[in-house]
């Protein structure tokens, strides 16, 4: 395995990256927290790992780029407070706590007790040479409202798996081009 290959699923019988095996599911600790859904995705960003990591590590950068995130307030080096819009005009909130931090390689977090949506995940950064950095984001979450809730969220395109895929594209756009591509005028209602 070269440095640029995403890590295989520990439970897989082949080299399939985590999230692409048919049986992919959150690990045991995550499941104990009620996080039954898993979304994993890798994208290549044409920047050095140290640039991508530095951008990510300052979580306040993410709120301008991730679509459904209304605000991210950095409380201290390990804790940030997230307010995310949900279907039906609601918002969900949680404190995210950094659980692992290896500069230029890895960031992992979990939501603190009392989160509206329990979630945990990790973002890994791998050097892809002339192609930039392979960013693998793995997110485990407790689908709000269970299976039905997940369907509703999908309908409103706020399902975390879809959202993750689109947010990764937006982060890539921002880091590579300095802006987020759009074809429609900005929402007249300003973002909080």
């Amino acid at each position: 395995m070269t440095d640029s290959t995403p890590a295989p699923d520990p439970e897989a019988r082949d080299d399939a990256p985590r999230g692409t095996t048919r049986s992919a599911r959150p690990d045991e600790t995550q499941q104990e927290r009620g996080e039954t859904a898993l979304a994993a995705r890798t994208i290549t960003i044409n920047k050095r790992p140290e640039d991508v990591y530095a951008f990510w590590r300052d979580f306040s950068n993410l709120s301008g780029v991730m679509e459904n995130v209304e605000s991210i307030t950095v409380r201290d080096d390990r804790t940030s407070h997230w307010v995310v819009s949900a279907p039906g005009g609601r918002t969900v909130e949680w404190d995210a706590i950094v659980t692992e931090d290896e500069p230029n390689r890895l960031l992992a977090w979990k939501s603190a007790d009392g989160a509206d949506v329990s979630n945990s995940g990790r973002v890994e950064f791998r050097d892809g040479g002339p192609r930039g950095t392979l960013v693998t984001a793995t997110l485990a979450y407790d689908p709000p409202g269970g299976v039905i809730g997940k369907l509703v969220a999908k309908l409103f395109q706020k399902e975390p798996g879809i959202q993750q895929r689109r947010d990764l594209r937006r982060i890539k756009q921002f880091l590579e081009t300095g802006e987020v591509s759009t074809s429609s005028p900005p929402n007249p209602a300003p973002k909080a």
Binding site: N46, E67, R166, S181
Partner: peptide, 26 residues
């Protein structure tokens, strides 16, 4: 074409990774 992605770097501009807005790429 964005001019800064891997494909634009190879002059394969119509393969630009970034010029299509994130939601429209699905």
């Amino acid at each position: 074409a964005c001019g800064s992605c891997y494909f634009c770097g190879k002059h394969q501009y119509s393969a630009c990774d970034n010029s299509n807005p994130a939601d429209n790429q699905d």
